[in-house]
Write a protein that binds this DNA or RNA. Sequence first.
DNA 1: CTGAAAGCGCTTACAG
DNA 2: CTGAAAGCGCTTACAG
Lengths: 341, 341
Amino acid sequence: MTLDLTGRRAAPTLEAVAAAAGVSRSTVSRVVNGSSHVRPDVVTAVNAAIDELNYIPNRAARSLANRQTMAIALVVPEDTNRFFGDPFFAEIVQGITQGLEDSDYVLNLQLASPSSPSEKTIRYLLGGNVDGAIVVSHHSGDDFFTTLDATIPVVFGGRPYHPELHRNNYVDVDNAAGAAMGTQYLIDHGRRRIATIAGPANMQAAIDRAEGWATAMREAGHPDDLLEYGDFTLASGAAAMRALLDREPKLDAVFVASDLMAAGAISLLRDRGLAVPGDVAVVGFDDSSAATSGEIPLTTVHQPSREMGAEMARMLLALLSGEATERERVMPTRMVVRASA
Amino acid sequence: MTLDLTGRRAAPTLEAVAAAAGVSRSTVSRVVNGSSHVRPDVVTAVNAAIDELNYIPNRAARSLANRQTMAIALVVPEDTNRFFGDPFFAEIVQGITQGLEDSDYVLNLQLASPSSPSEKTIRYLLGGNVDGAIVVSHHSGDDFFTTLDATIPVVFGGRPYHPELHRNNYVDVDNAAGAAMGTQYLIDHGRRRIATIAGPANMQAAIDRAEGWATAMREAGHPDDLLEYGDFTLASGAAAMRALLDREPKLDAVFVASDLMAAGAISLLRDRGLAVPGDVAVVGFDDSSAATSGEIPLTTVHQPSREMGAEMARMLLALLSGEATERERVMPTRMVVRASA
DNA sequence: CTGAAAGCGCTTACAG
DNA sequence: CTGAAAGCGCTTACAG
């Protein structure tokens, strides 16, 4: 065992394995990469040497020779607090991890600021450190992602805001239809003055959900004037609810574009002494764990977040392997009725 | 601009920059790496060529030549739900990110299972893909980390459970003293029957906090029999509270080893119609955002999570640059009094 | 089926 | 201060 200056073992190389197995480096490489043109007994001998030496291929060397990093980036243009605060992301990450499980790719998480990724992140993503990227929670106003998309294969979680993107691979739900369904549920249950708390206007999903609410309202002959924006955080849900109540004390329902904002809205409602759903019915969106962790289980529009994550991974893998693939995957939503409406 | 088969631009190399600037590759390399032995006008010319071509060094090539990856791993042996569910981790991550900001290192997050990291994670960490690692939330019963620690520099968030580790670099608080302080606060405020909800018995911090509670109780002449274990999740806090109430319906206070578990305990208490702090006083640990997001602001033992994260980053950076460094950093806790006790 | 050799894009002694 | 050359640890045509 060779020790380097700091007393740590020097990693064995292909060369060492070749010597131990009495074959050439080429052959070892073939075995490591599962080439079929190697004699079975040689495969056995090489594998024995690999186990013996505890050989792990050097990724840098491999990726230099290969021009492949076997890494993909998960880019989330949100600050840490929002990323960690919303269980929706946890489910997306789980799905992606699961979708990548059987592949040789590793996932590298890059948190970027919502406005614009740091110089460091940009260099990382553009500097050939990953073979592809999954971008979740895309906001408008930054064309870095257009550049990224022109550089490596990218799959978006949620239809990206920029329609002029070079390519356009995404996994999404029909946000407008889902929101309309949630709103219709309130209408069907006799609510009249139905407000909405929308997500930020620079995110496509937020726009679509607001639009779905407005459409359902208009079709039912109700006014679609009661809209306030949040930013998908708990606190912003409460703030928007307060603003809504100030504008229309007699509202009797609210469709909220995310469960987390809905939880914030409910806590404000209760602070004001309003009963949920007695006085005000609340319908959320996501069906994340935030829907069931509050005092009042949330009636909400379910989107299959975990499967969406897995699907993003699969789509990117297909793109990377050059397979012809579906480029736009829209998954179904459904109503989940609990206690808040 | 060269286009490859898929229509993506081929990245410019050192070679190309050298040609554009009319110098050798060696010189370009020196400029890129900030060597001082280059003539100023040459530096200018090279930088112009770099900007012109939009050159970004190939990390794989660099790290092969260098034997440095300029990447460090953040390893969290927890499942996704727990990692995302506890705001404590968000703060640690923020701190680490901040501590790494001015360095050239990128952070790669590796979620591992609490029992034992996957084959994939092991190969990643041991395969020379990162120069060092920060391990947060270490559990006993897995000696992979001993191997990791023998292979690359590692800093632990929280004193690791295994005392026989090769090296032992960590950032922590004095958990026992903090817990004793929280418990003493309850004693000083006249509580008699004080229970505790501990963290998992395979984590050093959990053990130390339970010990701190027990010590304070014994010193006050109170029995230290009312202990139930949780696993640092909200749900486990509620379950432990239920068990405690079953054992001792007349308990009047509980010291809980994390804010998230405390929030779970409080919700159970309220379900049972018990007033907090009227009937039962609750003291938490962490002072994470979970302390202030519930209905009842939590009185808790504050630990400087963000600074601890930053400190872990700094310590690892020092280790990587070979600087002699403090290897054990214990940061202060303090009482934060709010409404729950 | 197997090996020798070139090449991936950098860095870094070594000369000059 | 600068360049030619070797080397980092792999992969992959090319011969055989």
